[in-house]
């Protein structure tokens, strides 16, 4: 896993290069090369965006127009009525699923990032016996697929009657070995020992130094860890599928899956599945947009210091 080492600490170098090197080169390329590059990009933009466009269009149609109108263009725009119907269906169980997903992913990624950051920081900045052993065990954890753990976790949780609870999905989601790995690599590259020393001279305790000084230097790595873990938990399917029976505990992925597998018996669910699918991807897109900016700010701040 040492393969990532050269890329991560080197990242802050990007700001310096893109400004100086790009402009003078742009003129020299042949028009043919440029046209074919743009065609490739345009074709694949269609490939990546048309399915989402179709979903948006389909979710905005009433059922009678779903089959009878152009599937890739709007008919009467009834998206908001459809959303209203979805929210009202079965006492708003869909909203409950979205909230559950937000809790599992938001809470899990937040707590998970903090503890992974602390552990990675300790592995990078302190010398203690067993340090390498801990790091290697955690690295092995990166290669263990999370789905392989779902079944044994279910068996253990059923022994202590913890299956079918919020905690059965939330607690295992907190652990991110990859987060520890990334935090360690980043902390050793970006938190100077002198800074920690200076904080010690000022009389700050170790924990306080971490939370007030070191964390700031690690922001880009921590945001990345948060993002990865948020997505992993939001997308997680196997663990909730195996753990949960009670519909009100479902994350949105499991809920929509359950509806989709009943479409043949209850045709009205098809509308709700499509609208629900559209709504379920909006939070992740927003998170990406918000954190992308944050992440970039963190990167440029890191390269200035």
């Amino acid at each position: 896993m040492s393969t990532l080492t050269p890329t991560i600490p080197a990242k802050p170098a990007r700001g310096s290069r893109s400004t100086e090197a790009k402009a003078p080169r742009a003129q020299r390329e042949s028009p043919f090369a440029r046209a074919s590059a743009m065609i490739v990009m345009a074709v694949f933009t269609l490939y990546f965006l048309v399915p989402i466009w179709w979903l948006l269009v389909a979710a905005s149609k009433s059922r009678s127009q779903f089959n009878s109108t152009n599937p890739l263009w709007f008919a009467d725009f009834s998206l908001f009525e459809n959303i209203g119907n979805l929210m009202a269906y079965r006492d708003g169980v869909y909203l409950k699923w979205m909230l559950n997903s937000a809790l599992y992913a938001g809470g899990g990624a937040l707590v998970g990032t903090i503890i992974a950051g602390m552990c990675g920081y300790a592995l990078a900045k302190y010398n203690f016996p067993g340090r390498e052993l801990i790091f290697n065990v955690v690295l092995g954890g990166v290669l263990v697929p999370a789905t392989a753990l779902a079944l044994p976790l279910f068996l253990i949780f059923s022994q202590i009657s913890l299956t079918n609870t919020f905690w059965s999905v939330f607690l295992p989601s907190l652990v991110s070995p990859f987060g520890v790995y990334l935090a360690r690599i980043y902390a050793s590259a970006s938190v100077p020992d002198e800074l920690i020393e200076a904080a010690r001279l000022d009389g700050a305790g170790e924990l306080r130094t971490f939370f007030t000084v070191s964390v700031r230097m690690m922001v880009p790595a921590l945001v990345t860890v948060f993002l990865f873990q948020f997505v992993a938990i939001w997308n997680n399917f196997f663990l909730p599928l195996i753990m949960l029976r009670d519909e009100t505990l479902f994350p949105v992925t499991l809920g929509l899956y359950a509806w989709n597998s009943q479409v043949n018996q209850i045709p009205v669910l098809r509308d709700y599945v499509l609208i629900g699918a559209l709504l379920s991807i909006i939070p992740l897109i927003i998170i990406f947009l918000l954190l992308q900016r944050f992440w970039r700010n963190g990167l440029s701040a890191g390269s200035v210091k």
Binding site: F48, I52, L55, N235, T253, L256, I285, F288
Partner: peptide, 13 residues
């Protein structure tokens, strides 16, 4: 953008 679509949702779509 497609990475923001969970595997389950992408499969349904």
């Amino acid at each position: 953008v497609p990475y923001a679509v969970p595997g389950v949702i992408a499969a349904i779509m």
